[in-house]
Computed example of a mutant assay.
Amino acid sequence: MYIQFYTEELSAEAALRELLPRILGSEIDFDIHVFQGKTDLLDKLPMRLHALANWMPNDWRIVVVVDRDDDDCLLLKQHLNQIAADAGLTLRNTSVTSQPFQVINRIAVEELEAWFFGDIPALRAAYPRLSDSLGERRQYRDPDAITGGTWEALERELQRMGYHKGGLQKIVLARDVARYMIPERNRSRSFQTFYSALKEIICIE
């Protein structure tokens, strides 16, 4: 089996390259295609999926990962699903037994950094000066509900402890934290939805 991942930014690619081998194991091959931001992904995805639909092997899957940002999560998901349906590809939630799903769309709420807040032990393994009670603070108890910008909040906490003083280096952060992440313990609901989808692909394989 082979999986193509589509993501909007290099930091997501950095995190996935650390995480995916541990989740998928050695029997499933994958590649990651990075677009130049969310708008670029949404603009180019229809053409990319249309091209794939004409020859995509039965044992291929496509996983699209985008940040919610300020979008309505339901509307964004519907838009992504419509792009796949218009290309003639089968979605996970509409597939039938005789025709396995080909596309899974997943949204990081509100941003990739929420997935890092979901695993405080991984954050502290990468940045030991962070408080071990960080996840107990009211504003961080629900990683998917952090207000005022998730990456901005993480930047503030890291800079307070002397890290990333020149500004948050998102790719470095993603690589550093994802290296220590354990999917099963992540408190982000959007991460667990993403993780569950990958486990389902593994079971199909």
Rank of each mutant, 00 (worst) to 15 (best):
L49K: 04
G135M: 06
G25Q: 07
E111I: 07
W115V: 00
G88H: 01
P57N: 10
D70N: 14
G25R: 09
Q82E: 13
L91Q: 08
G37S: 12
A126W: 03
I104N: 04
V66M: 03
N54Y: 15
L19T: 10
A85R: 09
A84V: 01
I62G: 04
E8A: 09
T94C: 11
V109K: 07
P121V: 06
F116Q: 06
A108K: 01
I104M: 01
L16I: 09
A51P: 07
G25W: 03
Q99H: 15
G135L: 02
L80N: 02
H79L: 13
A126K: 04
L19G: 08
A108T: 00
R141Q: 14
D43M: 14
H79Q: 15
D43W: 14
F5A: 05
A108E: 05
G118V: 01
R129A: 15
D119Y: 06
D59K: 15
L130A: 01
N81E: 13
C73Q: 15
L41R: 08
I120D: 04
P46K: 09
L19Y: 02
Y140Q: 00
V96C: 13
A15N: 05
I32M: 10
A108C: 05
C73K: 15
H33T: 15
E27Y: 02
L20A: 04
R68S: 02
Q78P: 09
Y6G: 01
L10W: 11
K44W: 11
R48I: 12
L91M: 03
T97E: 12
L130K: 06
A87V: 05
I120T: 07
V63Y: 03
A85C: 13
A12L: 02
N105F: 04
A84T: 02
L112Q: 02
E110Q: 15
R61A: 07
D70T: 14
A125E: 10
N58E: 15
I120S: 03
R48M: 11
E9A: 11
V64W: 00
M56C: 05
S95M: 08
D71L: 06
R22E: 09
F101E: 03
Y6N: 02
N81I: 03
I28V: 11
M47W: 14
T90L: 09
Q4D: 15
Y140H: 05
I23H: 10
P46W: 05
L19A: 08
R92A: 00
I23M: 03
R48S: 13
L74S: 12
A14Y: 03
I23T: 05
E18R: 10
K38V: 09
A125D: 02
L75Y: 14
A84K: 00
V109Q: 07
F101H: 02
L20N: 06
L49N: 10
L45Y: 08
S98A: 12
D70L: 08
L89Q: 06
D71P: 03
T90W: 01
E110W: 01
A122I: 05
I104W: 02
P128S: 04
V96Q: 12
V65G: 00
W55D: 13
A126I: 05
Q4I: 15
D40Y: 12
D72E: 08
A126G: 07
